[in-house]
Computed example of a mutant assay.
Amino acid sequence: MNMNRVNNFVHYCARASHTVGIIPTCQWIFGTVQYNLNFSSPRFVRVWPRFLDHPVKLRARTSDPFVFRQIMIENEYAPLGDLKISSILDLGANIGLSSAWFLNRFPNVRVFAVEADADNYTVCSENLAPYRERAQVVRGAAWSRHATLVLRWKSCAANIHVHERGTEDVNEVCVEAWDIANLIRLSGFERVDLVKIDVEGVELEIFRSNIDNWLPFVRNLCIELHSQACRDTFFAALSSYEYQHLKSGELDICMNLRPKNDPQGAVHLAN
């Protein structure tokens, strides 16, 4: 049994080396060991996959190496690679690894990344800074309307939950939230070629109301659904749309969205 695990690990590392390079694989292994053995020196590891124009920073004792594995090694976003994409909303950007993947896969794309957690936001801003005007990072959250939300951390920095602020929350960590229609306006995009959503269950709130204010202006969706209730609400919201659906790892991808009663879609976001 142990030998099987060793063999599987060796094969996985060989696959990783082929995908991201030998040195980045060693750096990723080191970051994973840091997480599993709970030691924190050095505090950061810079990893430079062969297909990125710039390295990315991963933090010690966080879920960053796990997220790196999903995006950079297991290539979860690969099914999007053949689409024509020039504008992306990255909701739940974490430390910017998905945005970095998009910026390198689509040379002309502009990314508007939204991240609620202050530490994640800081690293995300650093990881995306080399892409200059092609990437804009905003500290905030996606919601069904404009609101002030309270942050809750569960297992790690990648597992952040939010809820609306109450009178008892005066000393809690808060963040401003917007509905997606307003995030599209903030981004300056007239239409959005891809909305990527990984918001730890908040998709339930996002997709249960006000979707007609923004969904007609989105061509493709890529989402991680965190419960059966989220899945049911999401696909119910898309019931009046046609699209091509596929799974990639933990992601549900809905491509070529178009309203059933208006195949061409709208042209301008309503004021």
Rank of each mutant, 00 (worst) to 15 (best):
N108D: 10
A60H: 00
R165S: 12
L128E: 01
L238N: 00
T19A: 10
D232G: 08
S227I: 08
A141S: 06
F189Y: 11
M1N: 09
H163K: 09
E203S: 11
V202T: 15
N8F: 06
T148M: 07
V150R: 00
C230L: 02
C222F: 02
R191L: 11
V162M: 09
L183S: 04
L128M: 03
F39I: 10
F66A: 14
D53Y: 01
G265M: 07
R208T: 09
H161G: 12
E176S: 13
S240E: 13
C174R: 07
I73Y: 04
Q70F: 06
S99L: 08
C222G: 02
C222D: 02
I71V: 14
A135Q: 00
N271S: 12
S17M: 14
I29V: 15
C174N: 03
L194S: 03
N171P: 03
I253P: 02
C254K: 01
R185I: 14
N75G: 08
R15V: 05
P49N: 05
Y77Q: 12
S41D: 13
F68G: 04
G21K: 01
A270W: 06
W214Q: 09
G166R: 09
F68R: 03
N210E: 14
I23K: 12
L257T: 05
G92F: 00
N4E: 10
E205A: 14
N261M: 06
E126I: 04
S144Q: 07
K84L: 13
